[in-house]
Computed example of a mutant assay.
Amino acid sequence: MPFDPPPSPLSATQRRDARAVAFWLFGVAGLVWIMVAIGGATRLTGSGLSIMEWAPLSGTLPPMSEAEWQRLYDLYRTIPQYALVNQGFGIDGFKQIFWLEWIHRFWGRLIGLAYAAGLAWFWLRGRIPAGSKPRLLGLLALGGLQGAIGWYMVASGFEADRTAVSPYRLVIHLGLALLIFSALVWTALGLMRPQGTAPAEARPVRRMLKVAAWTLVGAMLAGGFVAGIRAGLTFNTFPLMDGQLVPDGYWLLSPAWTNLTANVAAVQFNHRLLATLTALFAIGAVWAALRRLPEGRARRAVLGFGAAVALQYALGIATLVYVVPVALGTLHQAVAVLVLTTALVALHALRPAPKPPARPA
């Protein structure tokens, strides 16, 4: 995994500082979690293209006059989404989609402020744990990159043949958000518990959990393509897709690789397959944990991961069968981050205990 602080003994002051930094990172990760949910709602309501200007500073404030509202509405009326989807919905309709996108961008700025201010506060007081500064600076850089990629994604929706953003850019944006979230959580966990404690018997559990975690990541990225091409609005039956295990038209597009990202039937099937594999591997990890792990933190963490996967799987089925209502779709995206969180916690709890030093001959 990405990072663990050095396992050297820490003084009481160092342990206190490490815990304080960890709690701050957990707080920022919580803000990122909310951001992912807001982003899901923004996408489901088609609100993401309502703000057509990249204004990191001046865009912090919403429109303060009717003239400014009219200017922004006139800008929006120049893009295909207005002409093909929302034509004639008036400035009141524009304000409804504008406010959700404004909240989305404002929340991103809030995350940046919370992280940068917290980093400066701990740094200036000399409370950053040894070895953590490069990692924390790297996370700051990733946050800035995420803002730029967000605009790169939104700009794709202004092209002449589009009414939504590019699914490829959407998945890049989502993937980077998940990477930042994972790095925040893993770094905080490492500061709270610098050393692994799992016994050698936990090795098979850890292997199974790693496989489940990677299939989970694949399912989440595949879900980004489902969202990007609105593949959840068809084949709204489960477990079969319109009566078939593998739907007709899986290899409809040419070249063949484009089916993995642009073919509705293939994209939805792949998301279902990866989600099902994640559930099966999670069951395997839970079974192995019950057999091999004693009662304690590691065992509870694996069981928590299994419960989160079960909840998300059921929620995914409901979201599909009810044809992706905004509330269920947003909840499905938010709970995906919960599953990722439980996977990280379980993997961290299953880190092997350090080997005892060899005795001198």
Rank of each mutant, 00 (worst) to 15 (best):
D4E: 13
D4F: 06
Q14M: 01
R15E: 02
R19W: 12
A22K: 04
A29K: 09
I34A: 15
G40Y: 07
A41W: 10
T42G: 12
M52Y: 00
M52C: 00
W54L: 03
L57F: 14
S58A: 15
T60Q: 11
P62R: 07
P63F: 00
L72H: 12
Y73H: 15
Y73K: 01
D74L: 00
A83L: 12
Q87W: 00
G90R: 03
I91M: 11
I91F: 03
L100M: 15
H104G: 08
R105P: 04
R105K: 08
L113H: 03
L113P: 06
P129S: 06
G131I: 01
P134L: 04
L136P: 07
L137K: 06
G138L: 12
L142D: 05
I149A: 08
I149G: 04
M153F: 06
A155Y: 11
D161F: 07
V165A: 08
S166K: 06
S166W: 04
Y168A: 10
H173R: 06
H173L: 06
A177D: 06
F181N: 07
S182W: 09
A183W: 15
A183H: 13
L191R: 02
R193W: 06
P194H: 03
Q195W: 01
A198N: 11
P204S: 05
V205D: 10
M208A: 15
G218M: 11
G223N: 12
F225S: 10
F225A: 10
A227C: 07
F235R: 05
T237K: 04
D248Q: 11
G249P: 08
G249N: 09
Y250G: 01
W257H: 10
T261Q: 03
A262H: 15
A262Y: 11
V264T: 10
V264H: 11
A266V: 05
F269C: 05
R272P: 10
L273T: 06
L273R: 01
L277W: 14
T278E: 13
A279P: 13
F281Q: 07
I283Q: 13
V286E: 12
A289M: 07
R291V: 00
R292D: 04
V302Q: 11
G304T: 02
F305T: 11
A307F: 13
A307V: 10
A308K: 06
V324W: 03
V326N: 07
L328N: 09
L328A: 13
L331P: 11
T341S: 14
T342V: 00
A343L: 01
P356M: 04
P357V: 04
A358K: 12
A361M: 07
